[in-house]
Design a protein around this nucleic acid. Structure first.
Length: 126
RNA sequence: CGUGCAAGUCGGCUUGUCGCUGUCCUGAAAACUAUCAGGAGAGAGGAAAGUCCGGGCAACAUAGAGCGCCAUACUUCCUAACGGGAAGGAUUUCUGUUGGUGACGACAGGAAGACAGACAGGGCCACAGAAACAAACCGCCAAUCGACUUUGUCGGUGGGUAAGGGUGAAAAGGUGGGGUAAGAGCCCACCGUCCGAAUGGUGACAUUCGGGGCUAGGCAAACCUUAUGGGUUGAAAGAUCAAAUAGGCCCCGGGCAAAGAGCUGCUCGUUCGAUUUCUGCUUCGGCAGGAUUCCGGGGUGGGUAGAUCGAUGGACCCCGAUCGCGAGGUCGGGGCUAGAUAAAUGACAGGUAUCGCUCAAUUCUUUGAGAGAAACAGAACCCGGCUUACAGACUUGCACUUUUU
RNA sequence: GGUCGGUUCGUCUAGGGGUUAGGACGUAUCCCUUUCACGGAUAAAACACGGGUUCGAUUCCCGUACCGACUA
């Protein structure tokens, strides 16, 4: 099983990020706000994911780095739950305190399962 | 041994699995960039932080001078530079000893500070107080006039007077003596202060001698003056390469003869044209070329997304010698030590060092087990400082307490 | 990343060295009214924090914390 997370599976293009925030669908699942959009022109290509932690919620840069690393780790170990189909996902951490990996991982699994369900219900996204 | 203060050093170590970002090597595919697999080796700090100063670097600007604005301000030195640092000076203050009737001084040790200028100028100094810069409210004093209970007291007049009172943060040099109607640097000695000279010191300044009677309240961290420095903007600076789409320009081919083009958000309307126009030839029927407009193709310039450089070998680090009180300088040898860009150092499972807590054993200070604690904090072009945050460990020096000798 | 500005009652603000820190809305009490509202009177309530300059600091200077604006 592929546990890698190279650069082409992380979202870094400014145009796609703007599109995600302006036109993507979203839902809350504490401690995350999840944004997602499915692009037809990049179908059957690897999914791209973006992690973000608010400066308002976590004041110290050290704490933000820890959260982002744990999010990345949780996604890396569980990304097989989501079919690779050109899905762009934004994971925004909205919790107030730092969380350990043992707390984050079950939440990440819930998020990916819910995302899979939503996408299968409406297969044709704009 | 313990506690406190100051200075300095360090800021856990390690095994396995799965991952992230550069570098090098090998292989695959490809031959412009770029991709994949495997291996080796590297991968946050003392403050990376705050962005408070200084410099490198880059672009732009730039005749000279002045005004303005900002910053700095004892001296000498260090440095690429600094508002940083070192050494020193004076001042203030604290402690101890000591001299003097006193004002005050001497010596030793410690601490502190943005420490130029208040006879360049204007300004401010609330309340209180007579008066806040050069002052007569109370008081003191002799003279003169008047009254009375006549050698004194009271009141008036024009004067003298800064010793005393009270107010205030601050009241016009201070102490002691002489002097006087009372007083006053009015006079003397000393202390302070100012001016000049000599000596010592690179200098800030110090010491000694002589003189002035003293003319000088505070605020410049308010305006200001003097001296010195500052061109502006910051790596998202700047340089190079460069898709797709839509414009610009050039070339080629084709269509058409008014079908159109411009103004306008759109309609109406309006302008140009409507014998399309211009040039040449002409047998006057037209023909050729160009312009305008539409369609298609090709090229080219700027430039967006994006990519590369800038950008990590440097005022670098370690060791030794040498010069200097020191900050630091010079010489020699060795080393290469993050380079990301929606932004890399992580996750999980153990072992171990440190710290106390609980339980058990025990030769009574050790052993074993258990559950914990472990700070401040994340490079963003790079350096030199400053400031702020910080669990704990170690080294050195000083002070104090207790015990033993 | 860089450059600037601000912090005053619960809220919005004035004051830029001088001792009661002012105003509006809000809050509380009383009056008015049969009652409520309106109106009137009174009261409580603040200079972000730590140093420094000064006789004296909300004001001037330095540092810290927090908030905001601009810059592509």
């Amino acid at each position: 099983m592929n546990f890698k997370l190279p650069k082409n599976e992380r979202l870094h293009a400014e145009k796609l990020i703007k599109e995600l925030f302006n036109e993507g669908s979203s839902f809350f699942l504490y401690p995350f706000k999840v944004l997602f959009i499915q692009k037809n022109e990049v179908k059957h290509q690897p999914n791209q994911v973006l992690f973000s932690v608010s400066k308002k919620k976590i004041k110290r840069a050290t704490g933000r780095n820890f959260i982002k690393r744990r999010l990345r780790e949780a996604y890396r170990l569980n990304k097989h739950l989501l079919a690779a189909d050109g899905i762009i996902v934004g994971l925004i951490f909205v919790g107030k305190a730092e969380m350990s990996f043992a707390e984050i991982q079950p939440k990440m699994i819930q998020v990916l399962e819910k995302l899979n369900l939503d996408l299968s219900q409406k297969p044709f996204s704009p």
